[in-house]
């Protein structure tokens, strides 16, 4: 067995170097050369300042812009603490929280009728970092944003419909809207329409 033990130790060291170190560095090298943007976390820059990753949802709570789903990642969209709520469907505390979310959405968006609140906009995603909301959830926010910003409802509705991320290859997934992208586009419209409000809501884009 002593002879075998030496073989086992040699194999352990060899496979460690190969599977942990060499393999990781190989993929890192491929990323460095061919996919530097993705390898770094798909981070977008505006005025050479990092404004976030298009893959990771951001905390958008201002009523002037499109809001995302509730988030249980840290204190909301914390990129270092991914987490879902883990609430069971029959947990009384969870249903009480949901009542608050739903009532709040109805209050903020009075054009939406009770019974019509899109379920995704009042529930947390699996990671608390998903940037996507359903088309209904985006359209339901249009009248509110229009009223507050003075941008025509029609313009906003068009914006939503033009930025739907459809099913990939026509089949995979569910159509929805990336709130990171959508709010960036909204900022573009607001910049032309109302410079003062634009500066107030999007301070990072203003300077």
């Amino acid at each position: 067995m002593a002879k075998e033990l030496i073989k086992i130790i040699k194999m352990t060291v060899l496979l460690y170097l190969l599977c942990s170190i060499a393999y990781t560095f190989l993929i890192w090298g491929v990323g460095k050369i061919f996919f530097p943007f993705q390898a770094g976390g798909s981070i977008m820059y505006k005025n050479s300042k990092p404004i976030g990753s298009m893959l990771i949802g951001e905390k958008f709570t201002s009523p002037y812009i499109f809001n995302g789903r509730p988030s249980y990642a840290g204190n909301g969209y914390n990129g270092t603490e991914s987490s879902g709520s883990n609430y069971a469907p029959t947990n009384g505390k969870y249903i009480a929280i949901e009542k608050k979310f739903i009532d709040n959405f109805l209050k903020e968006n009075p054009t939406v009728k009770k019974g019509d609140v899109p379920v995704d906009i009042v529930t947390g995603s699996g990671s608390g970092l998903g940037p996507y909301i359903s088309i209904a959830a985006a359209l339901d926010q249009v009248p509110r944003i229009s009223k507050l910003t003075g941008i025509k409802e029609e313009t906003l509705r068009k914006l939503v419909m033009e930025h739907i991320s459809g099913r990939q290859f026509g089949i995979f997934g569910t159509p929805g809207l990336n709130t990171d992208k959508l709010n960036l586009m909204l900022a573009g419209i607001l910049k032309v329409k109302n410079k003062k409000l634009f500066k107030k809501i999007f301070p990072v884009l203003a300077d």
Binding site: K59, G79, L184, I201, P203
Partner: peptide, 16 residues
């Protein structure tokens, strides 16, 4: 980790 500031001025740290 990477630090970013989103368009509304909220800071966010991303784990990579």
């Amino acid at each position: 980790q990477k630090k970013v500031t989103n368009i509304t001025g909220t800071k966010q740290t991303l784990s990579v």
